[in-house]
Write a protein that binds this DNA or RNA. Structure first.
Lengths: 209, 209, 209, 209
DNA sequence: TATGAATGAGGTTTCATTCAT
DNA sequence: TATGAATGAAACCTCATTCAT
C-alpha cells in the first residue's frame, strides 16, 4: 500500500479502462455465446461492473453491437498487416496474409462468431468492417499492379477480385481449417494451393505445338 | 360426411401439409425477421395453426432450426442446377451458375438471411447444407476435368477451389449485387469478370520473346 | 369431487373471470398505491395469476390504465343513480346524489385515487369518465327545467353549472368529508348547506321596502 | 481575483441561487413530464448542476416534492391576488379572480400538472396549498359579509362555499377552458355565467302574485 | 390430432442514492 | 461545497414450453 502509487487509476484513466473492459468482455461473450445470448448481465459480470454501469459507456445494447465488430476488426487487420510486412511480392503477400488470417482466427475463435453474426445484428457495423477490409485489399492490388506483379485488370475485375479474395479467406478457414481441423502442414498446403489457383487460374493447359 | 372424400385430406396427408406449412412459415419469418425473432407464435400464426400444434411436428424450436436450412437449401440448389443444365462447357456452367444464384437470392431475399444466420443458430444444419453444395461442385469439377475443360488439379487444389467458388458466390452477391445494387448489365459484367479471373488467374502476362 | 360440477369453470367463463379479476386487483392496487406503483407484478400476484398471463388480457400496462377509470367509474355512477331514484324534485336529487357520492367514496376509498391520478396517467380515460358524468348531469338538468323546478338558464350557464356541480362534489368530499373526518351529522349539514347555496345563491338579501 | 467582488456570489448567496434553481427546474420538469418522470437527473441537468449536488439541498426526491407545490402555489396566489386588487365589490372579486386564474394557468400550463398530480405524490404539500388558499377565501368572504355584499351564511355554509368556489375554478378551467379550448370571448361568458349562478343560485323564479 | 391459456424465467433499461475525489 | 461514476433493485415485456380440454 505504501509502495503502491501506480495501481491507483485517475478518474479519466479508469473510465477508459472500463470502456475497454466492456469491449473485451463483450468480444469474449459474443464470441462464445453469440450476440443474442450476450446479455448486459453476462457482459458486465465478466468485467466486474454493475449492470447499470454499462449505460454510462453505451447508449444501449445495440449501440455496443454497432461498435463491436469495427473495433475488434481493426485488431485482426492489424495482425494480418503486420504479418505480411516485408513480403517478397504480391503472391507472397497473399500467402502470408491467408496464413496469418488462419493463425489469428485459430487463436481468437471468438472473432469468427462476432464477424459472422454481425451481419444480422448490425448491418452498419458489418459494412464498416468490410469497407475497412476492402480499402486494404485495394491498396495492395494497386501497388502490385504498379510493380507489374499481376496482370492488368479491368475495374470490374478488380472489384470482383477483392471480394473473391475476402470470400476465399472466409470459406477456406471455416470449411477446411476449422471444420477440417487442419494441422500446420495441411494449412500450408491449403495456402499454397490457393496461391497457385490465384496465380494461374484453372483454365486448360496450353499445349504448345 | 361419411360419403365425402375429395376435399378432405386423409390423416397422414393433413399431417404432411401441416409440417410443410410450418416449414414455409418458418422460412418466411426467419427470412424476414431473423432466427432470434422467429418466435413459435409468429410462425404458427402465419400458417394458421395454434402454438401448441407446433410441438406435434417438432421437438423444439431448435429442432426446427436444425432442419430449416437443409430444407430450403435444396430448393436453391435445384434452381441453380436447372439453370446450368445444357451448358456448353465448364466455364459456361460457372457463368450460368453464378448468374442463377444471383437471380435466386434477388427473388428470395429471405433465403439470404436464413443462410447467413444459420451458422450461429445451427452449425449442424449449416454443415449439412454446405456438404450438399460441396458434393455438387465436386461432381461438376470431376466431369470438367474428365473432358479436359480445366487443367489438372491436385487433391488439395480441388478442395480449395470448391470453397473458393462457394465463397465467391456469397461475397460477390452480398457486397456487389445486394449492397452495390447492381442492375442486370452490371451483374453480367461481374459474372464475366469472375469467370475470366477463374480461367486465367491473375498472374503477370507472359511476355513471349 | 364427485359432488362438484358447479365449481369448475368452462374455458370462456374462466377467461371472463380472469379479466374481471385483473380489473378488480388493479382497482385495489391503484387505489391503494397509486398508478405509478401499480406494477404488473403486484396486480397479478393479488389475483393469483402469473405475470405473463396479464398480457393475454391487456396489451400493456398502459392499456389497462386506459380502461380502468371508465370501468370503475360506471360502478360509481350506477351507485349514485340508484340512490337518487325516486327523488321528490331536482334539489332532492342533488341532495341525495351528493350524499350517495360521499357514501360511495367512504366505502371505496380506492376510487378516489384512481380518479384523481387518472388525469396524468390516461387523459383519454379521464375524458371518457367525465363525459359519462356530464351526460348524466345534463339529462337531470333538462328534466328539472322542463318541470320548472329550476330557473331558466342560458346554454353557457348550463355548461358552467354542470362542472360546478362536479367540482363541488369532488372538493367537498376531499376537503370537508375526507380530510375533515366528517361524521354523518356533519355530512348532512354539508349536504344541506350545499343545496341551500345552490338554490338561492349568495347574493345579498332583497330588502323589500 | 482577490480584488473582484461584484460578479462573484458570496457563499450563502450561491447556495440560495442553487436552491432556487433546483426549484425552478423541478417546476419545469414536473409540469412538463409529471412527477413520476421527474428524475433527479433531468432536474439537475436542467439547472446545470451535478446529480450529487441535489442532495446538498434536499434530503431526497420526496423532500423536494413535499416542498414544490406550496412554493409554486404562492406565486399563483400572488398573481390572482394582484389581479383582484381594487375590485368594486365581492362579485367583482370573484369575476376577476376566476379570470386571473384562467390566465395564470393558460400561461403556466406546468402549474396545472404540478397541482393535480401533487395529491398522490405528496398529500402533505397539497393540504398546505389548499389551506393557504382557503385562508385567502375566508378573508375575502368575511369582508364581503361585513360590507353586506353577500347574504348571511351559517358557518357550515361558509365552509362549503369556500370549497365550492375552489372546485369551480378547477373544474371550469380543466373542462371548459383547457379541454374546450375557450377563446377570450368564451372565457368571459364562462366567468359571467359562473358569477350569475353564484349570486342568484338556480332556484325557480319567484312568481309574485 | 389440435388447441390456446397459462406459466415464469430472463432480458433491457431507468433511476434514487452513495461516495471517493 | 460540488462532482459524477457507480451501484443494484425494480420495472415492463417476450416467449418457449406445458397441459387440460
Amino acid at each position: 500500500m505504501a509502495v503502491a502509487g501506480k495501481r491507483k487509476l485517475r478518474r479519466p484513466e479508469k473510465a477508459d479502462a472500463n470502456r475497454k473492459g466492456l469491449f473485451q468482455a463483450a468480444a469474449y461473450v459474443v464470441g462464445k455465446h453469440g450476440y443474442s445470448n450476450a446479455s448486459i448481465g453476462r457482459i458486465t459480470e465478466r468485467c466486474g461492473l454493475a449492470q447499470g454501469t454499462f449505460y454510462l459507456y453505451f447508449d444501449s445494447r445495440q449501440d455496443l453491437f454497432d461498435q463491436l465488430l469495427p473495433a475488434v476488426g481493426e485488431e485482426m487487420i492489424a495482425y494480418v498487416s503486420k504479418a505480411v510486412h516485408g513480403s517478397r511480392d504480391y503472391f507472397d503477400v497473399e500467402r502470408r496474409g491467408l496464413s496469418a488470417f488462419f493463425d489469428y482466427l485459430t487463436k481468437n475463435t471468438g472473432f469468427f462468431r462476432i464477424l459472422y453474426e454481425s451481419d444480422s445484428v448490425s448491418p452498419e457495423a458489418t459494412r464498416t468492417h468490410y469497407e475497412n477490409l476492402a480499402r486494404k485489399y485495394l491498396k495492395v492490388l494497386e501497388r502490385a499492379r504498379a510493380e507489374h506483379q499481376i496482370r492488368a485488370l479491368t475495374d470490374v475485375e478488380r472489384d470482383v477480385l477483392i471480394y473473391v479474395l475476402m470470400g476465399a479467406r472466409d470459406y477456406l478457414y471455416r470449411n477446411l481449417v476449422l471444420r477440417g481441423g487442419a494441422d500446420e502442414t495441411r494449412r500450408n498446403e491449403i495456402v499454397d494451393a490457393f496461391v497457385s489457383i490465384l496465380r494461374k487460374g484453372i483454365g486448360p493447359e496450353q499445349t504448345t505445338p
